[in-house]
Nucleic acid binder design. Structure first.
Lengths: 119, 119
DNA sequence: TAAATACTGCACCAAATGGTTCAGTATTCT
DNA sequence: AGAATACTGAACCATTTGGTGCAGTATTTA
């Protein structure tokens, strides 16, 4: 059954709700990057970008490694599988709900036909 | 190409980042409900629940209709298709990235083999 | 008609968010 | 060694978020 206690969905969907962070994920899909790279690409201070990377790192979407003065960021282990599954499940529920509605509409049409006044 | 201007992903992922709102969507998948129903189910004031429903309504995940004193909430037209697509695309990028990594690892193994000191 | 119900709008609040600047530290280049 | 680079942490700030209470309106019930 579904739990309403705070789940990791809270944090992962929140992470995805920021355009900069989605952009960082897309960028890291193309190539690894340093904090400086990302900061300049997204027109932001190092400190600001560090926070975004920190958030993505905390939930496993990004991993980083500091070598010398440079911290290199890569995609992490998290693949958003459960998030994809949640949405897919929602889409199924949604479809079932609207299929049911279609049935009702069909039924109404049928009933109307029965009740149709003779021309 | 990908735009970093504020997209509707911002609002829809933000909407999904709240457990109460995800719960409301799941509930409405089972049956339509009034604000009062939802408020009591999620242990919240009417005013609080009204806000959540308002957010879901604004982005099309829920529609409502007030008949008499009761406002009934149902699932709306939005099916989270683009959100599902974004995640799927991310998953592909992720897979490609890690496949590439595997290639590199393979290559390293091969190189190591070549450079292996004679026993 | 009076009371109960269901919502609505407004004002308020504390905490979280997304950004900044500034003052460091550590590392690398000349 | 000295200068430049890359990051880091702390403090700060405005706005948003997720909730509340209260006072009101509209509708239904007794």
């Amino acid at each position: 059954m579904v739990q309403y206690s705070q789940s990791h969905f809270d944090t992962s969907f929140a992470a995805l709700s920021d355009a900069t962070r989605r952009g960082v994920l897309e960028q890291l899909g193309r190539a690894d990057a340093s904090i400086t790279d990302l900061a300049s690409q997204f027109h932001m201070t190092l400190t600001g970008m560090k926070k975004h990377v920190g958030i993505l790192e905390q939930i496993g979407l990004v991993t980083t490694e500091k070598i010398g003065r440079v911290r290199t960021c890569k995609l992490g282990q998290r693949r958003l599988e459960e998030e994809a599954a949640w949405i897919e499940n929602y889409r199924k529920i949604w479809a079932a709900r609207f299929d049911a509605l279609d049935l009702i509409v069909d039924e109404l049409k049928y009933t109307e036909k029965l009740n149709e006044p003779k021309k």
